[in-house]
Nucleic acid binder design. Structure first.
Length: 865
DNA sequence: GCTCTGGAACAAATC
DNA sequence: CTGATTTGTTCCAGA
């Protein structure tokens, strides 16, 4: 495993580098610049592997923007272009033009193939119905599935592969279909944003090598319920619920169609697609084709229901010209087509009074890190999903919608939005590892329909990622109950074979629900917000066996220790152990084992052990995890030791660690990601705050109405976020936030690779929010912390987890009981001011549990500065 | 008859 | 290299 993980990591990075290499000069420049600029930050700070640094396109300077505000320009086309390629530079320019480059997984700036393989061999499956084939309308390169032949395509931008648009899951399997399938069915209910010519090739399921395998793949056989031939994938089928919920929740007055029609979002989506397309092939194509098609489509719509509309790519472009309504209607049409026949539905229940010019040409890529709040707006997850949700395979029936702990469903609300126009809330399944949040390659959101579902929704595809779009209506206070989202698991083998895919599926079973909303501003800009849920363990086994910490009563305590801490969660056993681990300088590790904690099935009482150094002058972040056995460990939870004389203050705001400290269960993400963040950018708050046009209130003063406190608690599965990165400096918080915003402004896309370095962003609701605070205030604090969280991909931070733990299993075994601390290192002791990560970490993180553990001990991560 | 679920059985991947 | 574990997927069966 270790190796595997390591490989994956590297590969990912390499991917980035490769991409760069392949990429245009800019790419190179970017890399250079980045490397130079970033490196200092990252490498030095974190000591990541070189690869990593490269991969991160963070372009710190990059203007691109962030996501929050997209300003686009007049002509959609232009804007688009700018965004991706140019845009970045344009906007930001300052820094490196190159930096501007954003290399989303599938997208390559300039279309340059990230990966070298212009050539693609595709094996088509006979299984696929022809319709599908048709749908994949990739213009330039269309592969038809119907044929069982291998086609070799030469792609300009082969790189895309990272996630085949088409194959969410490898087309090969049914499963793939499901994800894709539905989606894939391009035709079906969702839009496929990836229509770019480039992408098109990918669209065919065939693309993935796997395909060839598919026929043989178990899935094929396995799928009892879904016959290969059968296009009928239950849920996915276009027909499925044309109307998501007729019954619709009382709250929701809008039908899917309606809703869809109205929202601008689509437009945005379209734009995204366009962007993607542009990326590769160039603007030109887009520009031309789009308008025409668009209109054409519209005209045709009515006439032809079932047919798929044009490729998204095409769709995109037109906006500029089209007035909002038009666009909307168009969208509506599309949707209808997907739905299979609901042409009749009134399309614009909510008519936009004014034709809206397309405001935001460029929506941020899904792997970009976006803030959860900006200016007056704040997107918050009021009710977090349960920490466990057994995802279903395509060969299985749906396992239902993700539920909340309370038994209800997750709830998301947008605060600060006073307009009367409904918005679209986007939902996709994101990663929950230490790395930056990005779409999860092995899971897709699955649209749930039925009597029990009150929330309308519809699916769209964007780069291999299925997105569920849900209306956010003013009449509902811009609040949405997410009872229409299930989680589909794609077979690892299918995904891993995708070209460009670097992540491995094994033990990469934690996800987060990622919500986005794009708000068009009068000035033409678009504010994009994102909030991610606490991690959700999707594997049946893990959910049943791994201990899960949902909450801890104390997040921080003086170094003297001695206080009893109540840890609540799941799967605690009589012999569960609580292991405290500290990574100290250099590679030392401090480990503490507490013996005999009081326990119950869902709670453990642990006496906080005294910190090895009673004279710490600043808070020291450590972690602990629950161990049920060799490889059954919870994720790391954060705990902060405070200087003895310091009054105990709620952690949140505190240092950098807040999130961690805050007791929240830290998301694994935060854990790892922080490192990346680490490179703290000294940005003045003020600056930071200024996003686009809006001055962002200081976090603490966040404007947004405080949301109901969602769950302050920690739920997450995640291990604690290890804050490797977080600097303890007080400024930290502000910095982060600022970074955040800046990022937005900059548009840094997170690096597609994952590698991205900076994490700016995380603001996402993720861990942070949830964890700590719900309120705006909390935000401020939280923000900083980390959202970044990203945990390493596959490996969350679970200590034991395979990938996860850097610390690995520190062998809880070792110690069995002694409450004593093990210090490996010594040095440092404890005053970590700034923490840098070691390059090694990543590797470690990916290491397998067993093996890693021991190793982990050394590896470590915190460098005291 | 279908969907949703909880529990495995199986088999491949790791340890 | 072999056997024991783990983990991913597919099957079953009950509600």
């Amino acid at each position: 495993m270790q190796e595997a993980f390591c490989l994956s990591v590297h590969s990912s990075f390499s991917f980035g580098s490769a991409a760069a290499a392949a990429g245009s000069d800019r790419g190179l420049d970017f890399l250079h610049s980045v490397s130079s600029e970033m490196k200092s930050a990252e490498e030095d700070a974190y000591s990541y592997t070189p690869n990593v640094s490269l991969s991160l396109p963070l372009g710190m300077g990059n203007p691109c923007l962030a996501t929050q505000y997209h300003t686009l320009q007049t002509s959609p086309i232009i804007s688009v272009t700018s965004c991706h390629q140019t845009a970045y530079s344009l906007q930001n320019d300052n820094h490196n033009p190159g930096s501007t480059y954003y290399l989303p997984h599938g997208i390559r700036p300039n279309g340059a193939p990230a990966l070298e393989s212009p050539r693609i061999e595709i094996t088509a499956y006979s299984h696929y119905p022809e319709d599908e084939v048709e749908e994949s309308n990739s213009e330039d390169h269309i592969i038809k599935r119907g044929v069982n032949s291998i086609v070799t395509l030469t792609l300009p931008n082969a790189a895309e592969g990272y996630r085949d648009p088409t194959c969410l899951s490898p087309a090969s399997s049914i499963s793939s279909r499901s994800c894709n399938s539905e989606a894939s069915s391009y035709e079906s209910s969702f839009y496929n944003y990836d229509n770019s010519p480039q992408n098109s090739p990918w669209q065919s399921p065939c693309v993935s090598p796997r395909n060839s395998l598919l026929p043989n793949s178990p899935s094929s056989t396995g799928a009892r319920k879904y016959s290969l031939n059968g296009n009928t994938y239950r849920q996915t089928s276009p027909n499925q619920s044309p109307i998501p919920s007729p019954h619709g929740s009382p709250r929701v007055s809008v039908t899917d169609e309606n809703w869809i029609a109205n929202t601008n979002q689509y437009t945005n989506s379209a734009i995204v697609a366009a962007i993607n397309a542009l990326t590769t092939d160039g603007v030109v194509d887009m520009g031309e084709g789009i308008p025409i098609k668009t209109r054409k489509t519209m005209l045709e719509h009515q006439a032809s229901m079932g047919l798929k509309v044009e490729p998204s790519g095409e769709d995109l472009s037109p906006e500029g010209d089209l007035c909002h309504d038009e666009y909307a209607s168009r969208l509506a049409l599309k949707k209808e087509s997907y739905c299979g026949g609901f042409l009749d539905v009134p399309q614009h229940p909510y008519s936009w009074s004014k034709p809206k010019p397309y405001l935001s040409p460029s929506l941020p890529s899904l792997d970009w890190q976006l803030p959860s709040c900006s200016g007056p707006y704040s997107l918050q997850i009021e009710v977090q999903p349960k920490s466990h949700h057994r995802a279903h395979y395509e060969t299985e029936g749906s396992r239902g919608a993700v539920k909340a702990l309370s038994g209800g469903h997750p709830v998301v609300q947008l605060y600060g939005y006073m307009e009367s126009e409904p918005l679209t809330l986007q939902l996709f399944i994101g990663t929950a590892d230490d790395r930056l949040l990005r779409p999860h390659a092995f899971y897709q959101v699955h649209r749930i329909t039925g009597k029990t579902v009150s929330t309308a929704s519809h699916e769209v595809m964007q780069s291999n990622t299925k997105i569920l779009e849900i209306p956010l209506l003013p009449e509902n206070n811009m609040r949405a109950i997410i009872d229409c989202a299930g989680i589909l698991k794609l077979r690892n083998s299918d995904i891993e074979l995708r070209k460009g895919e670097t992540d491995i599926g094994r033990k990469n079973t934690r996800v987060r629900l990622v919500f986005r909303v794009h708000i068009n501003q009068p000035n033409g800009r678009t504010v994009s917000l994102q909030a991610s849920s606490n991690p959700i363990e999707c594997s049946q086994r893990s959910a049943q066996e791994l201990p899960l910490v949902e909450k801890q009563s104390v997040d921080s305590y003086p170094a003297t220790g001695g206080k009893m801490m109540l840890v609540s969660g799941l799967n605690f056993l009589p012999d569960s152990k609580v292991v405290f681990v500290e990574k100290a300088q250099g590679k030392s590790l401090q480990l503490q084992l507490l013996r005999n904690p009081t326990k119950t099935s869902s709670t453990l009482v642990v006496e906080i052990p005294p910190y090895r150094n009673q004279r710490i002058s600043s808070p020291v972040q450590v972690n602990f995890y629950i161990c049920n056995g060799k490889r059954k460990r919870s994720q790391y939870q954060r705990f902060t030791y405070l200087p003895p004389n310091v009054p105990i203050i709620k952690t949140e705001p505190n240092d950098e660690y807040d999130s961690m400290g805050s007791g929240l269960p830290i998301h694994s993400q935060s854990f790892y990601s922080p490192p990346r963040l680490t490179p703290v950018l000294p940005v003045p708050d003020s600056e930071a705050c200024m996003v686009g046009t809006y001055p962002c209130p200081p976090r603490h003063t966040t404007i947004t109405p405080s949301p109901p406190s969602s769950s302050p608690t920690l739920h997450d599965l995640t291990p604690l976020a290890y804050n490797k990165c977080l600097p303890s400096s007080p400024t930290h918080g502000p910095l982060l936030s600022s970074i955040h915003e800046n990022a937005n402004n900059l548009n840094h896309p997170a690096s597609p690779d994952h590698s991205s370095s900076l994490t700016m962003l995380q603001s996402q609701g993720s861990p942070n929010h949830h964890l700590n605070s719900p309120g705006p205030h909390g935000y401020s604090h939280i923000y900083p912390s980390s959202s970044p969280s990203s945990s390493p991909v596959s490996h969350p931070s679970t200590p034991g987890g395979p990938a996860e733990s850097p610390f690995g299993p520190v062998s809880s075994q070792n110690g069995e009981n002694s409450p004593t601390l093990l210090h490996e290192d010594s040095s440092s002791s404890s005053i970590p001011v700034t923490i840098k990560q070691e390059p090694q970490e990543l590797d470690q993180m990916y290491l397998d549990d067993g093996e890693c553990q021991n190793k982990l001990l050394w590896v470590h991560c915190f460098l005291v500065v």
